[in-house]
């Protein structure tokens, strides 16, 4: 029963709540193929008008960054406050900038 070859593959599900918004990850489903994954995602994640569009992606296809690398990847941004407009001082009487 726990033969991994016999278990339906896992798919990650993304829902677009309405046009104008991006698809957002909501969870995952098991399905034998892409069509079934869409149908399972529809039944599992959109029973209450949560979306107008679905993406399903084989979970195995997702490449994720390693949490151990979070420091080198994301910390360099912390001391670059000059990338934000609030870093710059503009006189009060100057408008529209």
């Amino acid at each position: 029963m726990s033969d991994p070859k016999k278990e339906w593959p896992l798919w990650e599900v993304f829902v677009r709540a309405k046009n104008g918004l991006s698809h957002k990850h909501v969870g995952s489903v098991h399905a034998a193929d892409d069509r079934m994954a869409i149908e399972a995602a529809r039944d599992t994640y959109t029973r209450r008008m949560e979306g107008v569009s679905l993406w399903v992606v084989p979970s195995a296809a997702i490449v994720a960054s390693d949490p151990a690398e979070a420091g080198p990847l994301f910390e360099p941004a912390e001391d670059k406050v000059y990338r934000h407009p609030t870093f710059y001082v503009v006189p009060d009487n100057v408008k529209h900038i």
Binding site: P4, E7, L10, G27
Partner: peptide, 23 residues
């Protein structure tokens, strides 16, 4: 049907810990 959905959300959450659905 909702209860079935709840079961599926939860199995999926448990699977992220490295245990398979079949197990």
């Amino acid at each position: 049907q909702d209860e079935g959905g709840h079961g599926l959300y939860l199995y999926a959450a448990a699977e992220t810990l490295g245990t398979s659905r079949d197990e």
